[in-house]
Every structure is written in C-alpha cells, then in structure tokens.
C-alpha cells in the first residue's frame, strides 16, 4: 500500500479527503482518506478508471482546489493556493490564443518580474528543446494539437517548477503524436542529473503510457489509493523492454485494477514488483 509520509518527500499527503455536493444535494466523495509521499525527482503516474479521483488529487496538489479534510504539503509547505513551484499541464488546450507562442512560454516568468532578456533566453531554450523554434512567432491557432502540447510542456519547464503536474495531458492526441510527446517530455525530464530532476505526477488512464513513463505507479479506485507499483525497468524503455516479464506482470495488475481482467493476474504478480513488502 501507499507508503507513509517520510522526511525527504517532496509531496506529502496525510488523510487527504475531498467531497463535493452535487446539484441533487447528494455528497460525493472524490478523494477518501488518502495518505502517501512522493520522493523528489520521481516520475509518478496516477492510474485509475474514470471518476476515481485522480484529477481531483492533482488539482489539490496544484492548489486549484482545497481539501475537505487532511493535510497536503509540497516542499514542506501546506498547499493553500496555486504557485509557480508547481507547474501544471492540462488535458485541454491551455495555451493562451492571444499571445504568440514565445510569449506564452515566457508568460509565467514575465508575471514574476523576470527581466526581458533572461526570460526570452529561457523561452527560446525550451522551445528549441521541444522542437518548436521555427514557430516561436506564430499564433497558437496556427499550430496543431500536438504542437500546442509541446508549447504547454515548454511553458511549465521554462517557468522553473520543481513539481510538474500533468493531468492526462496527451489524452486527446493521436498515437504517433503521443509517443513523440513522451520522448519530448522524458528528454526534458532526464536531461537534468538524477539528483536534480523535477518531480512529476502524471495522471493517465492509459496503462501503456504509465509503464513507459513511470518510476512508480499509484493506482486509484473510488477515491482511494489501492496499489503502489515500483517500475524499475531501465530507460529508455523500448518496445522489447515493455515485453519483459516484470513489465507484463505490471500490465496485468493494472488491467485487473481497471476491471479489464480478473484479479488472477494481480495475484500472480511477484512481491518484488511492489514498491513495499
């Protein structure tokens, strides 16, 4: 199960709950007494069926929503509002259509009063890293869906966030584009040395996506964390690597959690594949 909060964790949630009141006056529990901790520099995927509370959890970490009960700390500070140290990439297109691409990438830096030359340098660097230097002066309407995602990724990286929150960011793009975006994201994430990597929390319902990206997979169901898998396969993860026995077992476990297979696969998973004994 989810590991208890440790001292050096960058994100620490303790007995975190969030309820909503629906229009019909019913109370819905989106997040139910969740406790976990996330190591700095870890790439964590949150996997679960639709409505399991994974997006709610991400919004709480982002500070776009406040918990009903429990505590949540990021880098030792209680989360009460959004902040630039926690960058977010949304599922919908969030790129401002009234700003040119490069001005979008600079936006957060400009808001915080970073000098013109410095923020331009940073924006140009990250645009180059996501392969969009040639459209820096274009309007977002002139870009494809996949390119807009690259802009969003470049924007959070340029903004210097230590914690990156991605809410099904590539859910609406085609398979090939999605694979390319994984490469872009992983390249940006791994290019920093392993001790200064940014912490990533990536929400997805795509099992293969989680296995390609994650160091650790938290599985959610009905507002609770029901499983915690450590994915230790070496990077970069190739198609062959995904067919290794441990990866296949992970996949069976995840599919069982999503209700696509019976729990047999999960039961067969060896203890060594779990994060904790």
């Amino acid at each position: 199960m989810a590991r208890a909060a440790g001292g050096r964790d960058v994100i620490v949630a303790s007995k975190l709950s969030r309820t909503f009141r629906r229009a019909d006056k019913q109370t819905v529990t989106a997040l139910d007494d969740v406790t976990f901790g996330i190591d700095p520099g870890q790439f964590v995927c949150l996997v679960g069926p639709s409505g399991c509370g994974k997006s709610t959890l991400l919004k709480l970490i982002a500070g776009l929503m406040l918990p009903s009960a429990g505590t949540l700390e990021v880098e030792g500070e209680s989360v009460t509002q959004p902040g630039p140290e926690r960058g977010m990439v949304f599922q919908q297109d969030s790129v401002f259509p009234w700003l040119r691409v490069i001005d979008n990438v600079e936006y957060g830096l400009k808001c915080r009063g970073v000098g013109r030359a410095e923020r331009r340098r940073s924006a140009e660097f990250y645009l180059e890293r996501v392969g969009l230097s040639h459209v820096a002066r274009a309007w977002p309407r002139e870009l494809s869906g996949g390119m807009l995602k690259r802009v969003a990724v470049a924007t959070v990286f340029a903004n210097g966030a230590n914690v990156l929150l991605l809410d099904e960011p590539f859910g609406a793009v085609d398979y090939v584009t999605k694979r390319n975006l994984h490469d872009v994201l992983l390249a940006l994430w791994t290019e920093a040395g392993s001790d200064e990597r940014r912490t990533v929390v990536f929400v997805t319902h795509d099992v293969d996506e989680a296995l390609i990206l994650a160091d650790r997979i938290l599985v959610m169901h009905s507002g609770r964390i029901v499983d915690d898998l450590a994915v230790t396969a070496p990077r970069p993860r190739t198609t062959d690597g995904l067919m290794e026995p441990t990866m296949v077992r992970h996949k069976h476990v995840l599919l069982a959690h999503l209700g696509l297979e019976d729990a047999k696969g999960a039961a067969e998973a060896p203890a060594g594949a779990r994060a904790d004994p």
């Binding site: 630039p84 977010m88 919908q92 969030s94 009234w98």
Partner: peptide, 24 residues
C-alpha cells in the same frame, strides 16, 4: 482553463485580469 493556467504559472489576480480576462 485559461484562468487556471495563469494561476498555476504564478500570475496574481490583478495580472490575470490584465493579461487573461481583458484579452479573452
């Protein structure tokens, strides 16, 4: 989504009105 995006990028409320609400 634009307001949420601006908030997570570190914009203040006044900045959101000036740089997001006004053009939008």
């Amino acid at each position: 989504i634009y307001i949420d995006n601006a908030r997570t990028l570190g914009a203040s409320r006044l900045q959101i009105y000036r740089t997001v609400v006004l053009p939008a």
